[in-house]
Nucleic acid binder design. Structure first.
Ligand code: MN
Ligand code: MN
Ligand code: ZN
Ligand code: ZN
Lengths: 133, 133
DNA sequence: AAACCAATGCAATAAAGTTGCACCTAACTA
DNA sequence: TAGTTAGGTGCAACTTTATTGCATTGGTTT
């Protein structure tokens, strides 16, 4: 199940397992605050450092959606967090959910001379299907 | 010069003129902190509220580049801040500058059913031409 | 068993963003 | 013109989010 830690060469610990499973169950991009409120018996800084470790090991990617807090979502298998591995996101301004639009890859753009890209943060926002009455 | 305020139906005030001219001179996306440090005789909250007013009146747009602080940049003439009016941005992780890539418009994407887009925040990051030695 | 090292929890702190309130100023009214 | 009003501004306090220092824990290695 969570042999993801073997693959990513990372020690399996209680907090890491819980945070990983939590993200895996939800399949959405979640904020630290949100995760913390559900995994209330874990400490905030432990979750924070766990997420940071996950980012370093390319287990999760971050999304800056303008909501004021960083969102975290599990990477797809084989993701290297290069722009070509990444995708658009959608932030709903009503329910504040952030979705990974896995079907929408980041397009390759031609940058001005001398610019070298290493990351991408693509966020569309508006109303999601649940909130669009 | 700054008849922009007439166009946007907004009172011309000392702080607004200074902030507008400052953004206009720099032609980059700047953070509140950065602006504040240069316009040091102005109060932070006055600049903050001015920027907020500018956003409301579509004089500036915001960029969430993952740097930890919101960046503000002047809109192009006729901009309505719809996704179709907006463009990609580039954040340099070395000099922390954020550029408006005016030549790169936001592509129109086909969203899942029920999703309605109203905003876009497209940020590529890496090294800019100055920092790419 | 002792030493070791990373992970964790707790508490403090930093950084960014935001707000309440008093004062000022410039436009409007009488 | 003098009085009134509304919005703009500055100051200070505060909220929220992110981050760090440090002591403790717990499993692994000698
Ligand atoms: Mn995603
Ligand atoms: Mn821009
Ligand atoms: Zn929604
Ligand atoms: Zn640079």
């Amino acid at each position: 199940m969570t042999d993801i830690f073997k693959i990513k060469e990372l020690a399996s610990t209680p907090v890491r397992v819980l945070v990983y499973e939590y993200l895996n169950e939800h399949q959405k991009a979640l904020s630290l605050k949100y995760i913390e409120s559900d995994l209330y018996d874990l400490d905030r800084s432990s979750i924070f450092r766990t997420l940071k470790t996950f980012v370093d090991h390319k287990i999760v990617h971050t999304i800056h959606d303008g909501s004021g807090s960083v969102k975290y979502a599990l990477c797809q298998e084989g993701c290297n967090c290069d722009p070509s591995d990444l995708h658009f996101h959608f932030y709903c301004t009503t329910c504040e959910a952030t979705y990974c639009l896995l079907d929408l890859p980041v397009p390759s753009v031609s940058l001005p001379t001398g610019f070298v890209i290493s990351q991408a943060n693509m966020v569309l926002s508006g109303l999601c299907n649940n909130c669009n009455s």
